[in-house]
Amino acid sequence: MDPVINHQPPSPATAETAIECRELTKKFGDFIAVDRISFRVQRCEIFGFLGANGAGKTTAMRMLCGLSYPSSGHATVAGFDVYRQQEKIKQHIGYMSQKFSLYDDLTPLENIKFFGGVYGVAEKEIRERSHDLVRSLGLDREANKLVGGLPLGWKQKLAFAVALFHRPRIVFLDEPTGGVDPVTRRQFWDMIYEAAEKGVTIFVTTHYMDESEYCNRVTIMVDGKIEALDTPANLKHRFACDNMDEVFYRLARTARRSDS
C-alpha cells in the first residue's frame, strides 16, 4: 500500500543539506543516551528515525530541535548551529510531539491562530490561511467547536497542519501516528508526502515498520548508536529480509538497553 503520491527525493549530488550531524553525543551522567551519531538529511527528504524505546531517538531529536544541548559533536539544522543559533533554528522548524499537542479547550481555529501568532506569522496571513486550512482538513463544521471533542485522528492531522502553518523548512515528528487507526495513518502519510513535495524536509520517528517503508531513507538506532542508514529497499536487500519489520528485528534484538 504505497501512498498516493510517489515522492522522489532529490539526488544527493545536487540537494541542499537540511540537517547535518557529526559525532553528535548526549550524556546524562555516565549514561550515553546518544553515542556519536553522524548523518546528513537533504532538503525535501523524508527521513525516518527508527529505534526501540530507549534507543535515543527522542533525545537526538530534542537536541536538533533546540530543546537540549548536545554533550559533544556538531550539528546544524537548516544551516544553523545547534549550540549557538538555537533561536534561528526555532524559526525554521516545526515540531509535533508524541503527545497530542494542541489545546483541547480551544477550537481548531483558535489553535491555529495561537500557534501561528506564537511563530510570528502576520495576523492578516493567519486570518486568510486559517479558514482555508480548516476547510482542507475537512473540519469546516468543527471549526468553532472545541478540539477536545474531535476524534484522535483528526486531532493529529490538525496538529500536523499547525506544525506546518508557519511554513518551516524542516518539520520534526515524534511518533506522530501513535494510537491512530490505519486509515487515518494513511491519510496522515499523504499529508507528509504533500508537505515534502512542497519543499519541507520531514524528520520522523516511528514505531510502525510499515511506515518506515514510506520514508526515503531510514536510520535505525540501537543503544544510542546508528546501526543502519539507507533506503528501505537497500536495507532489505542488505539484510536479505522481505520487509522492514525483519530488518528492524535483526538489528534491534542485539540491544542491551530497553525502555522501562
Partner: peptide, 13 residues
Amino acid sequence: ETGTMEILLVSPF
C-alpha cells in the same frame, strides 16, 4: 502535562 509546553519551547517564543 498535555505536552504543549514542548511545542512552546520549540517555538521562537
